[in-house]
C-alpha cells in the first residue's frame, strides 16, 4: 500500500538522485521494471547495467538517467528502509509510484502536493493524519489541509 508523508521526516533522503549514484546495484538496472520505467520516463533503452542509450544524449552511463527515474528505482529496489523524497519526481512518475504502491508497502515523502490526477483512482494512507484516500480528489482535499511541506 502507498503511504504518503508530507514535510520533514526522519530517515528520509531529500535528494534521492545523489543517494542513487552512490548506492545503486548493477542488477537493479536490468530488471524488467527498471527497463520499462527508463523507457517510459527517459525514452531511453537499457543496453546493460552500465550503458543506457538516450535519444538525446546518445550512449550515457547509468548515473546520467533522470533524477525522477533514479528515485523510482530506489523506491522499487532499495532495501535500506530509507524513505525517498518523491518531490524529486515529476508528475510523469506518478503512475509508477502508484503501481509500486499496489505491489508493495511503499512510503514516500513529499514536500509539495504532487499532482496525482493522471491516476484518478488509487489508495493511499496520508500518514500526517492517518486518513485513507481512495481517489485523486480525496487525496487533494486531504493534502491541502495538511500544513507540513
Amino acid at each position: 500500500m502507498l503511504k504518503i508523508i508530507f514535510g520533514e521526516v526522519e530517515n528520509s533522503i531529500y535528494h534521492p538522485p545523489t543517494y542513487f549514484d552512490n548506492q545503486y546495484e548493477d542488477e537493479w538496472i536490468t530488471e524488467p521494471l527498471t527497463v520499462a520505467m527508463i523507457k517510459d520516463i527517459d525514452k531511453s533503452d537499457v543496453v546493460g547495467a552500465h550503458l543506457i542509450e538516450s535519444p538525446v544524449l546518445g550512449p550515457i552511463s547509468t548515473k546520467e538517467i533522470s533524477g525522477g527515474v533514479k528515485t523510482l528505482i530506489l523506491m522499487a529496489f532499495d532495501q535500506s528502509g530509507r524513505i525517498f523524497n518523491a518531490s524529486a519526481c515529476g508528475d510523469n512518475c506518478v503512475k509508477w509510484i502508484v503501481e509500486l504502491g499496489r505491489k508493495k508497502d511503499l512510503t514516500i515523502n513529499l514536500h509539495h502536493v504532487m499532482d496525482f490526477s493522471s491516476v484518478p483512482e488509487f489508495e493511499a494512507v496520508m500518514l500526517n493524519t492517518g486518513v485513507v484516500v481512495h481517489s485523486y480528489g480525496e487525496y487533494l482535499e486531504e493534502a491541502i489541509r495538511i500544513k507540513e511541506r
Binding site: 520516463i41 527517459d42 533522470s66 533524477g67 527515474v69
Partner: peptide
C-alpha cells in the same frame, strides 16, 4: 523551473 522528469533541468 520545474515540471516532468527527464526534461533536461539537471543537464
Amino acid at each position: 523551473i520545474r515540471g516532468d522528469s527527464a526534461t533536461g533541468k539537471t543537464k
